[in-house]
């Protein structure tokens, strides 16, 4: 399998290099998305299927869509390189030296010690059997709560900046049936990912991203109700995730005396309930980060 790893990483590096050097915006973004998918494959090879799912859905999917949206609005690549050929070569040498140093530093380390046995020993008490979900929603739930806060702040920021909203246009006869198949499937898959996250790869982030994909298919197909009230509802839904998570953390402290300490025996119920609300909130947030808020009247 080493041969496969080598081919995969070579392809990955080639795609990343294309994404960062091609002069044509669309081609560069396409290379970026392909690189994202190859990275998801790399995560599978590194025995991290949870990360792979999130990378494919968020890293390649949502980020790629965001880039495509902005590329259309910003226009072609402007401004030459900084400095001339010699500056570029100097930068290349510097970056090459740095990455060699990094490789030396990372490859010279001995690998994991304390965490895996600790996670294994406490997995029973965490309420779920997928160790990654146990880390994300129980052992280090505070990290995850703050991560949801990052999403919420990004949402507030994008709403404040008010980029031009994405206007759905008539996209032809095939998009409607496409959406009709994909949207219910997305909801189904999201629900499945969410539920399965407790025991197998999956969870709120992956489910939320898939759900966001379905919602975007709806928006782009121009189906369903649109307008200020829907966007406002999506905004509230996006923000609600953080409120629910903080509320749950405080409620848990009220019950057990420990911030984010779920009551014994009911951990799984708490985790699934938090994850379910996070899924909806993440989906709404990702969707709004793409479509933007309603254009404000004074602009």
């Amino acid at each position: 399998m080493i041969a496969f790893d080598i081919v995969l990483t070579l392809g990955l590096l080639a795609c990343a290099a294309m994404a960062l050097t091609l002069r044509d915006r669309t081609a560069s973004i396409a290379a970026f998305v392909v690189a994202g998918l190859l990275i998801a494959l790399s995560w599978v090879r590194l025995a991290a299927p949870d990360v792979a799912l999130a990378e494919a859905a968020i890293g390649a999917g949502v980020t790629g869509a965001l880039f495509l949206r902005s590329a259309r609005r910003i226009g072609p690549i402007t401004g030459g390189p900084v400095g001339g050929m010699s500056a570029s070569i100097a930068a290349a040498l510097g970056a090459g030296g740095l990455s060699a140093a990094l490789f030396w530093a990372f490859a010279g380390t001995s690998g994991p010690v304390p965490y895996p046995p600790l996670v294994a020993a406490n997995l029973e008490a965490s309420g779920v059997t997928n160790p990654v979900t146990a880390v994300l929603l129980n052992f280090r739930a505070w990290d995850t709560l703050l991560e949801i806060a990052v999403l919420a702040v990004a949402l507030a920021l994008v709403v404040m900046l008010g980029p031009a909203p994405v206007v759905p246009r008539a996209l032809g006869e095939l998009v409607l049936p496409f959406a009709r198949i994909v949207v219910p499937l997305a909801i189904l898959v999201a629900g499945h990912l969410l539920w399965q996250g407790a025991t197998a790869p999956g969870g709120a982030f992956q489910a939320g991203a898939v759900l966001a994909g379905g919602m975007l298919a709806l928006v782009l197909a121009g189906i369903g109700p649109a307008g200020e009230r829907i966007v406002r509802g999506a905004l509230l839904l996006g923000l609600a995730g953080l409120a629910v998570f903080v509320g749950a953390a405080l409620a848990a402290e009220g019950l057990t005396g420990r911030f984010l300490g779920y009551p014994a025996g009911a951990e799984k119920a708490w985790i699934i309930a938090i994850e379910a609300s996070l899924t909806l909130s993440i989906a709404a947030t990702l969707c709004l980060l793409f479509t933007g808020p309603v254009r404000r009247p004074h602009q």
Binding site: D50, A54, I58, P112, P116, D143, T144, I282
Partner: peptide
């Protein structure tokens, strides 16, 4: 793979 860096990577993506 150690689950803790997996959680870090997931957080990083979001």
């Amino acid at each position: 793979t150690d689950p803790v860096p997996q959680a870090f990577a997931l957080t990083g993506i979001v």
